[in-house]
Amino acid sequence: MNPEYVINPLGDSAIIVTWEQRIDPAVHAEVMKTYYHLRSLTSPYITDLIPAYASLTIVFNTAQLRYSGHKPAMQWMMAWVREQVKHPENRDIPAPRELHIPACYDPSLAPDITEMAASRQVAINDIIAWHTQTVYTVYLTGFLPGFPYMGKVCAALETPRRKQPRLQVPAGSIGIAGAQTGIYPITSPGGWNIIGQTPLRMFSTTAEEPCYCRPGDKVRFIPVTLEVFRQIQQEQ
């Protein structure tokens, strides 16, 4: 499969490759293939590669390119990216990690779950069943360091963002916004509907890999009781 994509400058120091604009694991797989391919080349000019739902942002160092005699730098990078995106070799693309993330849906940790169940005239257990039935794709991490944007939740779970964002959403909180589900890695203001909390530390400043989730991961939520939640939390 070689889906359509376009390559455009993003300002004077970045390029963005854009695929068909939809939330689709197949489109995202193309993004990740390109991401890992470019990463494996360890270009001295590229400072960051940011994969998202259906795009890859390539941030580069213009001065470095000019010191190497590539002039104009943008034109040189555009040609280089065009060539690389055309022939992504698959050798360095790791299989997606499958993460099992314990999630406690106890209303004491899930301020919006009761309302979500009530508005749909279902039991809280139905909300839990719907949220845990899907294996989610991490499409991107953004908003906060290590915040995974995952999707899609089943249609019955889709909920718009809260009109009034909360000033403080505790770290580990699991939320829903539209068709997306995500986890707050650190305590922060936020507008997602909170339906649970994981005891896992999603962001650790001491770990070699500071973020628990990365783009491309497959995530399944495992429901745990409040007791198990506390237990895992203490072990962390």
Partner: peptide, 11 residues
């Protein structure tokens, strides 16, 4: 801090 934007860590 470059090289971590794919994790949501801004420079």
């Amino acid at each position: 801090r470059y090289g971590y934007q794919h994790l949501g860590i801004n420079p």
